[in-house]
Amino acid sequence: MTPEELKNIKADKVVDARGTSCPGPILAAKKAIAEIQPGQIMEVLASDAGTKKDLPAWCKKTGNEFLGMVEDAGDLKLYIKRMK
């Protein structure tokens, strides 16, 4: 998805993992993904640059779809679609 498309996504769940470093954002995402239904979208807010690589890899490993990322004033907004 393009950054513009991502900015217009209405997430079903928002997880704020800013201020945590690896594995904080992954652990927060893992816990929160169980709270949404398949097909719904979760937005993960992070400030750790490692999350740019870690979250897409976690999605691939868990069978969820990584939709993309938007960087906004140093904060990262990463979007995941729960697949199962």
Rank of each mutant, 00 (worst) to 15 (best):
T20W: 01
A49N: 14
L67D: 08
Q37G: 04
A34K: 15
N64S: 12
E65I: 00
K84E: 15
R82Q: 01
K77Q: 11
P56C: 01
T51K: 04
I26E: 01
C22M: 14
R18Q: 05
D75L: 15
I36E: 02
G68I: 00
P56S: 09
I36P: 07
E35K: 09
G19F: 11
R18E: 01
T62N: 12
K7V: 06
L27E: 11
P3G: 05
N8G: 04
V14S: 05
G19E: 06
K13G: 02
I80E: 04
I26F: 04
L76T: 09
L76Q: 07
I36T: 07
G50R: 15
L45A: 01
I33Y: 10
K31I: 12
T51W: 02
N64G: 07
K30Y: 12
I36H: 07
T2R: 09
A32W: 05
D54E: 14
A49P: 11
D12S: 09
D16F: 01
S21R: 15
E65S: 13
A57N: 14
A11T: 04
G39D: 11
E71Y: 02
D72M: 08
K53N: 14
G68K: 08
E4D: 15
V14G: 05
K52I: 09
A29Y: 03
M1Q: 10
G24T: 05
E5K: 13
A46W: 01
E5L: 11
V44Y: 02
K7A: 12
K61H: 12
K52R: 14
K10L: 11
P25N: 08
K53T: 13
G24N: 05
I9H: 03
P23I: 07
V15Y: 03
A11G: 04
E65C: 08
D48I: 09
L78Q: 08
D12I: 05
P56F: 00
G68C: 06
L67W: 09
E65N: 14
K30L: 10
K52H: 06
K81D: 00
I26G: 01
L55W: 00
M69T: 11
K31G: 06
T62V: 03
M1A: 10
P25H: 11
K61W: 09
A57E: 13
Y79T: 00
K52S: 10
A46L: 07
V70G: 00
I9W: 07
A11C: 09
D72G: 07
N64E: 10
E35Q: 12
N8W: 08
D75R: 15
N8Y: 09
V70W: 01
L55A: 02
I9P: 00
D72W: 03
L55K: 07
A57F: 11
P56Y: 00
W58C: 02
L27G: 06
I41E: 00
E71T: 13
D54H: 08
K31M: 10
T2W: 06
M69P: 06
P25T: 03
D75M: 15
T62M: 10
G63E: 00
G68Q: 06
V14I: 13
V14T: 15
E43N: 12
K53S: 14
V15S: 02
P38R: 12
D72A: 11
A34G: 12
K31A: 15
E43V: 00
E71K: 10
E71M: 10
K84W: 11
E35D: 14
